[in-house]
Design a protein around this nucleic acid. Structure first.
Length: 255
DNA sequence: ATGACCTGACCATCAGGA
């Protein structure tokens, strides 16, 4: 089973690259973030063209997440409503036959740090922690998406630039580590730094300078990790016409 | 450097991203 996660920074703007991604990489499950479109029917019909079913949480202009999947996959949605109370930031699905839950998240950015936005980021992460804590008793976990957290200094090309950024604050890292301490494995952690960056700022053309940060993740329970066949940041999609500022991330599982 | 670039709103310029 191949799972891809991608913060597309607008579905409409990324349609040509999404088509390429779907046709080339053939994901079984495709988790997207930052759709920036309200129209759920539009999102669904876009992926229908590629024989993918889709479930989505949307809002106008901002945020929005979706999970598309091959038609023969048997799954059900479990809405974690507390994660979508204010903005559309989560879809969660269960594959009952595998006892696996897949949680797709667009974590709040949280900047600037002296505002309500940062408080809301930390609250949202605490809510996610509680949800996963209760799910992990019954299910294997695959948690993915744009976490908007730089967990360690080495996950940025120059951590000094992020000293006052919500992504690298101790509180943000603490909430990230609480997820890890639920016995979830950050599988990209052992991938060499320059191959594990997932975001390159449009401003000052960071991609060309290889100055990125690692903020998109797969966090897996140990059994799912044991089924991992392949893992890759699809960096080439950051180098095409009209790219997202995030790279897609891809994992193959022997399940 | 509270910058730069990109997107959606909507038509001039702002909010938001990270």
């Amino acid at each position: 089973m191949r799972v891809i996660s991608w913060n597309v920074n607008s579905l409409r703007a990324r349609e040509p690259l999404l088509e390429k991604l779907v046709l080339t990489e053939k994901p079984d499950i495709l988790c997207l973030q930052e759709l920036k479109i309200l129209d759920k029917d539009y999102v669904e019909s876009f992926f229908n063209k590629f024989s993918l079913k889709t479930l989505s949480e949307t809002q106008k202009s901002y945020n929005g997440v979706s999970i598309s999947y091959k038609e023969d996959i048997n799954l059900k949605e479990i809405p974690l409503k507390k994660l979508n109370l204010i903005q559309a930031r989560n879809n969660t699905i269960i594959l009952e036959n595998l006892k696996l839950v897949i949680i797709n998240c667009y974590f709040p950015n949280g900047n600037p740090i002296d505002t309500e936005k940062f408080i809301n980021k930390i609250e949202w992460m605490k809510t996610l922690f509680k949800e996963i804590k209760s799910l992990k008793d019954d299910y294997e976990i695959l948690l993915t998406g744009d976490f908007n957290v730089i967990p360690d200094d080495e996950d940025a090309y120059d951590i000094k630039k992020y000293k006052n950024d919500a992504l690298a604050q101790p509180q943000s890292r603490k909430e990230f580590n609480k997820l890890i301490n639920l016995d979830l494995i950050d599988v990209f952690k052992t991938v060499p730094k320059k191959q594990s960056y997932t975001f390159f700022d449009y401003k000052t053309y960071k991609f060309g300078k290889d100055e990125g940060i690692r903020i998109d993740f797969f966090l897996l329970s140990p059994f799912i990790k044991s089924k991992m066949l392949k893992l890759k940041v699809l960096k080439e999609y950051r180098d095409l016409d009209r790219p997202s500022d995030h790279c897609p991330i891809m994992i193959d599982l022997n399940i």
